[in-house]
Design a protein around this nucleic acid. Sequence first.
DNA 1: TTGTAAGCGTTATCAT
DNA 2: ATGATAACGCTTACAA
Lengths: 342, 342
Amino acid sequence: MKVTIQDIAKAANVAKSTVSKVLNDSPKISKETKTRVREIMEQMNYTPSSIATRLAKRSSHNIGMLIDMARESEYMNPFFLNIISGIESVIGPMKYELTIANMQQDDPERNVINRLVRSGRIDGLIANNAIMSEDMVKTLNSLDFPFVTIGEFHSFPVPWADYDNAEGGRMLTGHLLDEGYRDIAFIGGEPLERIFTKRHQGYRQALLEAGIPYREDRTIHGVADENHGYQAVLELLRSDHPPDSLVCMNNYSAFGALKAIQQAGIAIPGEIGIATFDDYPFSPHTNPPLTSLFIDTFQLGATAGRMLIEVMNQPDLPYPSLLLQPKLNIRESTLKRKAGLE
Amino acid sequence: MKVTIQDIAKAANVAKSTVSKVLNDSPKISKETKTRVREIMEQMNYTPSSIATRLAKRSSHNIGMLIDMARESEYMNPFFLNIISGIESVIGPMKYELTIANMQQDDPERNVINRLVRSGRIDGLIANNAIMSEDMVKTLNSLDFPFVTIGEFHSFPVPWADYDNAEGGRMLTGHLLDEGYRDIAFIGGEPLERIFTKRHQGYRQALLEAGIPYREDRTIHGVADENHGYQAVLELLRSDHPPDSLVCMNNYSAFGALKAIQQAGIAIPGEIGIATFDDYPFSPHTNPPLTSLFIDTFQLGATAGRMLIEVMNQPDLPYPSLLLQPKLNIRESTLKRKAGLE
DNA sequence: TTGTAAGCGTTATCAT
DNA sequence: ATGATAACGCTTACAA
């Protein structure tokens, strides 16, 4: 059947321990035996059983990515392949495999920790902060099991990688200020959402730095979808003194806002400027194209992967954490000065 | 350190084979021993080593999803999470794990077949037809290794699951005909693209069935992106007798077409109708919203997963293949009759 | 119903 | 430089 290390040993007239050493390129084996054994392996089409190797080496050489397929679809979908490609780009060359696991909270028997961690299926774990409960963190820590979350984590010291959402808010708002806008509204986001809090905080800070007073009524809370963006902006435009520009929580929010503005026949970027978080899927395609904040999700994955490897190799160092910087894609929707010159 | 089956055996005063049988819920073990041993497992926080189990059982209980992260990103990105969620939904409950592997053609040493298949890392493989070369099919077959491709495969008999692109073309075209359109152009797609061929074939057939002659010059080939859609339709509209409706290869293509039409000030759906493949990301959001063909990528993944399990369990049956049916989402962009009544 | 012992395919530790 | 042999942690005949 399957050819094993034993078969090679027999064919080469050596002990299987010798074959094993050839496999691991041990310096104690002579050049001659190595080449001879390798030739035989080639001939017999031998590939070592990774499972046996793992058992003997006590390492699965496998890292796990935990997601909640039920919940995350909408938000993660467009980015997921990028993220895992990023992870793969760093762990792949180190011969680690990537296992995707679906956490099913409804089935405690198929508990994630047992299924993956205790069973030795994976050597390290990456998960979105949204699904990483404090209980899980505790358990993982008590097992000295290496993991990294994608997304900031502050209630506990854990290793994490994220984009700097506050800085993003500053960048978008700062850009609008640079372009001469003065009355900037923030559209979308629930007060308790972690991401909203960060983004909004950057917005406030940019205002503060520019010496512009923060106005409570310029933040329109909500689910950050197209409909909310539309309704919110419609209402703003109806008021006596509408804002002269908008920062939107995401592309859908911005798209709704855009509709409302166009319907009201107000000029972009001349009369109102609009900038938004996320570059996907609409920003480059709308009319006018939207100034927006690009987040390199591949890099995010790669960073998380690198951090995990680091944590796995040096468990005793303090937990690392890293904020990546977003990139501002300036497009027509905020170019007030340029528009003014025309 | 880690608690093993041996420790449990000792603590419970039984042989480790007994513990193993308890683990596998063998009917030969008495209720009493079972509960006693299980209690001890619980107390000692025991989880069996999956690697040891796999070695003993000679099955990795793991299935692999092979992708080319370098190439597929753009096309697969929005669907990838859906597809693997679908796969997981069927293999997960059967206790299979999902490993995502990046095929790196540039590195033959890290050859996919060896790395995953021969090494016993996975028991079955799912891959997009685009990256499944004939060589690979041959090798896989010679190893009697179970696999399924996502996407039709005809050069060889292999198990595959796909959406019925020809039927999709018929549905879109047929719907336009039903609405009273008679001169339907097909926008986007390269003549040699497999998907284009299928979709276009359905388009032609619908015309044929309606007794409308097929006109070569009504098919505008190209890369099927926004720019091509825009240019193509711009040109069509400039001609003496522009078509009265469009079938577009995808959302980007359709989006470009939409821009051209709006710019020309032509009424949708009154003067021209527009229908497109794919429901993502623009179709529901444009103005007017686009009639489009929805493909349930979760189902596609689930189907592929089910087929793989089937092939794994019954290797001797003839290879299955399955065409799933798309769903037509009718929206304003093609409702000519209704528009006519107003 | 339970126990004994021989695998599963490697690696690792000693000898030689 | 090579070989014997005991792990690694589980399953599975076969005995008892």
